[in-house]
C-alpha cells in the first residue's frame, strides 16, 4: 500500500489584493479571485511592478525554498517522524533561483540532513509524475519514508504592468511524507501520466523574462483537464482537485464528471494559482479533514498536451 502519512503546504504572507492590482494599473483583476499570495516585498511591487524579473529575484521576503521548507516541516510533523528518518527527497520547482542544484537538494540542505535527493518534475502535472514514479517503484527499492515536495513563486515572473498573469498567479508550496511500508491517512490508489492532446498555445514560462499567458489560456487548460477526465472512468462521487485557473470553472467541471470541488475554487480565490505546487497545496490543506472512505481525484493538464491523474482514498 502506498500512502501519505503527512501533508504540508505553505503560502507566503504577502497579499496582492484586487485593490493593489488596480493601484498597479496594468492588470485587471479576474472577477472571482480576490487575493493572491506573493513572496515578494509589496513595496517592490508597488514601485517597480516587477518590470525586471531579475530585480524581482532579489526582492523576496521568502524564497521558493523557504516555502518548501515550511511545507516540509508541516508534513514531517504530521507524519510523526524525525527528519533523520526521511530516506529520500523528490523535489520540483518551476521558478528556481538556482538552475543547479535542484529544489530537493536545496531543501535537504535546509533540513540539514544527508538525504538522497533529486528532482522529478513535469510542469503543471508535476504532482502526477512524482506520485506515478513512487507508486510504481518496487517496495524494496524505496526508502521507508520519502518526502515529496514542490514550490512555485510565479509572482517573481509576472509583469504587473500588463497582461492577465498577475490576476491569476500566486506563490506556494506543498510537501508530502509518503511510504509503502507504513499506512498513512491517504492511500494513493492510482497515478498516471499520458498524452491527452496535441500541444496548445497559451502559457510560456521562460528562464528569463516574464511569464506569457494568453487571454484564452484559462479556457485552454479547462478543455485539457476535461480531456484528462474523459479518459478516466472511475471519477464519480469523488472530490475533484484540478489545476484550472478560473475559480468559476471548477464547479461546472466537477459536476460534468459526477464530482464535487474539493476546495479548488476557494483556494484560487484566496491564494491564486501557484503552478506546479497548486494541486498539492490544495490537497495538503484539506486532506486530514476528509471523512474515511472519501475519494479524491486530482486531474492535471499542461499546455504541451500532457495529462496526469492521481486518485486517493481517505483511510
Amino acid at each position: 500500500m502506498f500512502s501519505i502519512l503527512g501533508a504540508g503546504f505553505a503560502y507566503p504572507e504577502g497579499e496582492i489584493s484586487n485593490e493593489i492590482l488596480r493601484t498597479l494599473g496594468g492588470v485587471s483583476p479576474s472577477g472571482t479571485i480576490t487575493t493572491r499570495r506573493t513572496a515578494l516585498k509589496l513595496d517592490y511591487l508597488l514601485t517597480e511592478r516587477n518590470a525586471d524579473p531579475k530585480r524581482g529575484s532579489t526582492a523576496f521576503v521568502q524564497t521558493p525554498t523557504d516555502l518548501t521548507l515550511r511545507a516540509a516541516l508541516m508534513a514531517i510533523e504530521q507524519a510523526g517522524i524525525a527528519r533523520s528518518q526521511i530516506g529520500m527527497i523528490i523535489g520540483a520547482t518551476d521558478t528556481p533561483l538556482q538552475v543547479t542544484p535542484g529544489e530537493s537538494q536545496r531543501l535537504g540542505d535546509r533540513l540539514v540532513e544527508k538525504i538522497d535527493a533529486f528532482d522529478v518534475s513535469s510542469g503543471l502535472t508535476t504532482l502526477a509524475s512524482q506520485m506515478h514514479a513512487l507508486l510504481h517503484w518496487k517496495v524494496e527499492r524505496m526508502p521507508e519514508y520519502v518526502l515529496c515536495v514542490a514550490a512555485s513563486a510565479p509572482t517573481q515572473r509576472v509583469d504587473y504592468r500588463s497582461g492577465i498573469a498577475g490576476s491569476y498567479l500566486g506563490d506556494g508550496a506543498y510537501a508530502f511524507v509518503v511510504s509503502k511500508r507504513h499506512q498513512g491517512f491517504l492511500r494513493v490508489v492510482h497515478a498516471e501520466q499520458r498524452r491527452v492532446s496535441a500541444a496548445r498555445e497559451g502559457f510560456v514560462l521562460p528562464l528569463y523574462g516574464h511569464i506569457r499567458m494568453d487571454q484564452g489560456a484559462p479556457q485552454v487548460i479547462e478543455e485539457l483537464i476535461a480531456n484528462v477526465l474523459e479518459r478516466r472512468a472511475t471519477t464519480e462521487n469523488a472530490l475533484l482537485i484540478c489545476n484550472a485557473f478560473e475559480p468559476a470553472s471548477i464547479a461546472p467541471l466537477a459536476l460534468r464528471f459526477g464530482m464535487s470541488d474539493m476546495g479548488v475554487a476557494e483556494d484560487l480565490a484566496l491564494f491564486g494559482h501557484c503552478l506546479c505546487a497548486f494541486p498539492g497545496a490544495v490537497l495538503a490543506k484539506r486532506a486530514a479533514q476528509l471523512n474515511r472512505g472519501v475519494r479524491v481525484c486530482i486531474a492535471l493538464a499542461d499546455y504541451e498536451g500532457l495529462g496526469g491523474i492521481v486518485e486517493l482514498e481517505r483511510c
Binding site: 522529478v120 510542469g123 501520466q193 510560456v204 499542461d302 504541451e304
Partner: peptide
C-alpha cells in the same frame, strides 16, 4: 524555458508523443 520544459520540447521535436518527465 521552464514551461514548456526541455523534455517536452525535445519530445515534440522528435515526434515523440509519450509522457515526459524531468
Amino acid at each position: 524555458e521552464i514551461y514548456p520544459s526541455e523534455a517536452q520540447r525535445l519530445a515534440d521535436a522528435l515526434g515523440i508523443t509519450a509522457p515526459v518527465v524531468d
